[in-house]
């Protein structure tokens, strides 16, 4: 449904995107994550036909965003990271205006606006001036605005930015509902645990490049070349930490109360051998296992590896 193919984009001397390629299949909720300046907003702007790629091609539903920009606009709903609303317009009028801008017939607009306000849980705000709505309500109204022309693809740049926890939860619910409607959603956010909850797949970007992509499980596995392990013993935790430091494939071994944490590099058989060796040596082991990484830690690990590689180059 969405295809970036070798896209590069410069702003003066700054390289915003470099040979960026990504494929998003229909019906997926796809997360774009990366630090500030990673190129997420640039990629989304190109997809939204607001900027031209310097090199490469981008297509939406098989339509090129440069040569068939009008066709693409009919297929996408775009919500930028920062957006304003019009003063002196009521919520329903706001949606009807955008419906007209997408050439929806006049007779359908008011019914459409009412339905969309219902979808984003603002049915009682139809007659309220837009600028008097709370930030969370404005975000939901903007999401409704993205849907006026029933697009196949939604591009949501930081839709949860600046929202309180309740408003974020409501936004998540709406995005889940959009997935049920078979919309393809490309979403960026800094709040990684929430992205992990709603996204089918994610892509990690850094310095304009795609660093990793796949399901959340795949991403966390990719970053798991060296695993964080934890052993809890009934006594002699300090001695165990010192013992582990002498073993091959183990680094950063340290005691923390009754438990010992360390970084382990090796196959599962070696991991089993390590446990057996500890028990044979006489430590009373209560727990032994891997400290599960979440998306945030995977993101830090992947972007950290990139930074280390860049530093080494």
């Amino acid at each position: 449904m969405i295809e970036f193919n070798g896209v590069s984009k410069n702003f003066g001397a700054t390289r915003a995107l470099e040979q960026f390629s990504l494929t998003v299949r229909q019906g997926l909720v796809y997360g774009l994550i990366g630090p500030n300046g990673a190129g997420k907003t640039t990629a989304m702007s190109i997809l939204a036909t607001l900027q031209l790629p310097g090199a490469g091609t981008v297509t939406v539903d098989g339509r090129d965003v440069v040569r068939e920009a009008g066709e693409v606009r009919g297929r996408i709903g775009y919500m930028p990271d920062f957006f304003g609303v019009y003063d002196d317009l009521r919520a329903a009028e706001y949606l009807e205006f955008f419906a007209a801008a997408y050439h929806i017939p006049a007779g359908q607009r008011s019914h459409l606006a009412a339905g969309l306000l219902e979808l984003v849980d603002l049915p009682d705000k139809a007659g309220v001036y837009v600028d008097s709505l709370s930030r969370g309500m404005k975000q939901r109204l903007a999401l409704a605005r993205c849907l006026v022309h029933d697009p196949k693809v939604l591009i949501l740049d930081e839709p949860a930015s600046g929202l309180d926890p309740r408003a974020r939860a409501e936004m998540k619910e709406i995005i889940r509902h959009l997935k049920q409607m078979d919309k393809t959603v490309l979403i960026s956010s800094h709040i990684l645990p929430e992205l992990a909850e709603i996204c089918d797949e994610v892509a990690i970007m850094d310095k304009g490049k795609l660093v990793a992509c796949g399901t959340v499980a795949e991403i966390t596995a990719v970053s798991r070349g060296a695993r964080q392990m934890r052993i809890e013993v009934l006594d002699r935790a300090e001695e165990l930490a010192a013992y582990l430091a002498t073993r091959p494939g183990i680094s950063d071994s340290h005691a923390d109360g009754p438990s010992v944490q360390f970084i382990f590099s090796g196959e599962q058989a070696e991991q089993a051998g390590l446990l057996q060796a500890i028990i044979t040596a006489g430590w009373p082991v209560a727990e032994f296992g891997e400290v599960k990484r979440n998306l945030e830690e995977a993101f830090m690990a992947v972007t950290g590896e990139e930074a280390a590689n860049d530093g080494g180059n």
Binding site: R73, F82, F83, A101
Partner: peptide
């Protein structure tokens, strides 16, 4: 300045 132009430019107008 009101950050409404980009949204307007992504419509069919």
């Amino acid at each position: 300045e009101r950050q409404t132009l980009n949204v307007l430019l992504t419509t069919r107008l």
